[in-house]
């Protein structure tokens, strides 16, 4: 791992009496794909709320390139759980949303995203509304909206959680190809063990609430990755770890 771009040290967060994150410490290097893998309700989305500034941590430090995160300047492009496409905007206008917020004119923003539609498998759907797209295409549109913001790092919150198994597998392969090509520094949170193994350079395994890191797993497999014995072995190891860690069921 090269010098850390993002580093979280001892992050804790509680909602009233509910301690959601214990003592969370992670690091993500430049160009690295890192996953946080944890059961539902373990506080994964909360981590992203802290990073995007929607919430403040109770304790701990959040550093980017060695400096504390500034509230008015966040170096992240965030992709929420579910696609969060706006029904009332055409796909092209959904994908330019971030540029629009940055103050880039509509025409200039459209010119910037238009060439990317083909690579994202959305060519010809620029003028469609989200309701006219399949689940997989909606996720690709949401990812396009995320990467086109040209931020230093991607935050992906269970991007494929709502898709059927086949589409999900297809999208995972596609994302891996895209990532290999572009080398985005990425932090993914997911509860899908295979997804984490297929996509990540490193995986942090999060315990059930209060979430803390119980293991850090490197995935030294070559890319492109396909499901097979090597992936299955790592997957089994992580599952054992998660299931053997004592949890209070909710």
């Amino acid at each position: 791992m090269s010098a850390a771009r993002l580093e979280l040290r001892g992050i804790a967060k509680a909602f009233g009496d509910l301690q959601v994150l214990g003592e969370l410490s992670i690091a993500v290097g430049k160009g690295e794909f890192v996953s946080i893998l944890g059961p539902s309700g373990s506080g994964k989305s909360t981590i992203f709320k802290l990073l995007t500034g929607a919430l403040l941590p109770d304790a701990g430090a959040m550093l980017f390139d060695g400096a504390p995160l500034q509230p008015d300047h966040r170096p992240f492009a965030f992709m929420p759980q579910r696609d969060a496409l706006m029904d009332w905007r055409r796909i092209i206008d959904n994908t330019t949303l971030g540029l629009e917020v940055q103050g880039i004119g509509r025409m200039a923003a459209r010119r910037r995203v238009a060439p990317l539609f083909a690579e994202f498998g959305l060519a010809g759907f620029e003028q469609h509304y989200p309701a006219q797209l399949s689940g997989g295409m909606r996720q690709r549109a949401a990812l396009l909206r995320t990467v086109v913001q040209d931020k230093d790092m991607l935050l992906l919150d269970e991007p494929f959680g709502a898709l059927d198994a086949l589409t999900r597998a297809d999208m995972q392969r596609w994302l891996e190809t895209m990532w290999s090509r572009h080398g985005w520094t990425s932090l993914l949170v997911t509860h899908d063990v295979r997804e984490a193994v297929l996509l990540s350079d490193r995986i942090y395994v999060l315990s059930a609430r209060p979430g803390r890191i119980i293991a850090e797993v490197a995935v030294p497999l070559s890319r492109p990755r396909r499901t097979g014995a090597a992936v299955a072995a790592i997957e089994a190891g992580i599952l054992d770890l998660l299931l053997s860690t004592p949890t209070q069921r909710t």
């Binding site: 709320k49 995007t52 500034g53 929607a54 008015d72 300047h73 966040r74 992240f76 492009a77 965030f78 929420p80 759980q81 579910r82 969060a84 706006m86 009332w88 949303l97 971030g98 629009e100 917020v101 940055q102 913001q149």
Partner: peptide, 26 residues
Amino acid sequence: TADEIEQLVASMGAPRWRIFLIARLP
């Protein structure tokens, strides 16, 4: 307004009034 959409627009750095125009009003 969907929480996700609001959080998304906020994560892009939009101030309160822009969140209103971009997400809440439509």
